[in-house]
């Protein structure tokens, strides 16, 4: 068991190393003078010099690289140009907002996607199955910002059930959080629900055809028991790996969704940073978000090993 944990952590180290290298290199790809790009149109040469010094752009490449990694080891990602605060500090405030939203979307996805996938598999080739698959197809084809806009129009403008945007912290007011987060979470979840329903259905169909399921039924076990205990537990194993993808999709999707619903999370932060050419913020935010996702994937790997004895024994 510990072998699996150790292995997935060690396996992620080179990925993280290269991710940080790419993030570092990205900012050096700015065509022309990065300081001028950051400063905008009207600046004096002294101001340019100041920006260059501030970002360490006046130093040789190797020194910049060494400083970047030195900073990383101390959790120092530089300062946001726009807000003047530490990138790390801002991220630690904003990231939990996005994570909470993503988890809400994940819960919706699991509740609706998983259940509809299982039902579709059990009722294969019936109207229920076909309807589920049609809805899944719509789910994976509607852009989340379009869905978000349509929901604002219907639930906020016409029906007046929910606010058009804004954000209330989960800790301050859970009901308020639900009111402000439900539309964004739904618009994020639809794509993933579609994906999950399709995957669950095909995995379930495969499992249901196995011999041991037939044996279980032949023994005279009640149908529900066969489905829940024998089929589902085994079908869930490959589905665990999808959870990592779903969280990654949520965080990607949150970029637009948060801007749409004015939620002060990572997505909105990064979009604003990008539009204002706040490069240290873009760089740090990208790196931290990706690191978070790598950690999620390590957890998914471990969960996978825990659930599937074959993986556990093979690897340890």
């Amino acid at each position: 068991m510990w072998g699996v944990v150790l292995r997935s952590i060690l396996g992620s180290l080179p990925v993280l190393l290269i991710v940080s290298l790419i993030t570092f290199g990205l900012m050096r790809l700015i065509p022309g003078d990065p300081a001028a790009a950051i400063a905008g149109m009207s600046v004096t040469s002294e101001q340019l010099e100041l920006i260059r010094k501030d970002l360490g752009l006046d130093e040789p490449f190797v020194v910049q690289l060494a400083k970047w990694y030195g900073g990383l080891l101390q959790g120092d990602l530089g300062r946001s140009i726009l807000m003047g605060q530490e990138v790390m500090e801002v991220t630690m405030i904003r990231l939990p907002v996005t994570i909470a939203l993503s988890l809400y979307a994940l819960v919706l996805t699991l509740a609706l996607g998983l259940v509809s996938g299982i039902i579709a598999a059990l009722r294969q080739n019936t109207v229920v199955d076909q309807l589920t698959m049609v809805f899944s197809m719509i789910g994976i084809s509607v852009p989340n910002f379009f869905l978000g806009l349509l929901m604002i129009l219907l639930f906020a403008v016409h029906l007046g059930w929910l606010p058009t945007g804004g954000y209330i912290s989960l800790w301050d007011d859970p009901v308020g959080w639900l009111r402000t987060s439900t539309m964004p979470a739904l618009s994020l979840a639809l794509l993933q629900m579609g994906l999950l329903a399709r995957i669950t259905r095909s995995t379930m169909l495969e499992v249901l055809r196995q011999d041991y399921i037939r044996t279980a039924r032949a023994k005279g076990l009640p149908g529900r028991l066969v489905v829940v205990k024998h089929a589902l537990t085994n079908a869930l194993i490959p589905i665990t790996t999808v959870v990592g993808i779903i969280i990654s999709l949520s965080i990607s999707g949150a970029v637009v969704t948060e801007s749409l619903f004015s939620i002060p999370g990572m997505g909105q932060l990064l979009t604003q940073a990008v539009l204002n050419r706040d490069y240290p913020m873009v760089q740090g935010g990208l790196l931290l978000t990706t690191t978070f996702l790598v950690l999620v994937n390590i957890l998914v790997d471990i969960a996978y090993a825990l659930l599937d004895p074959r993986v556990r024994y093979e690897r340890s």
């Binding site: 990925v15 990607s252 970029v255 990064l270 490069y279 990208l286 990706t290 996702l293 790598v294």
Partner: peptide, 14 residues
């Protein structure tokens, strides 16, 4: 490992 849209945004930003 990068979330797809986020990386695309960062690249176009640069």
């Amino acid at each position: 490992a990068f979330p797809a849209i986020l990386l695309a945004i960062a690249i176009t930003a640069v």
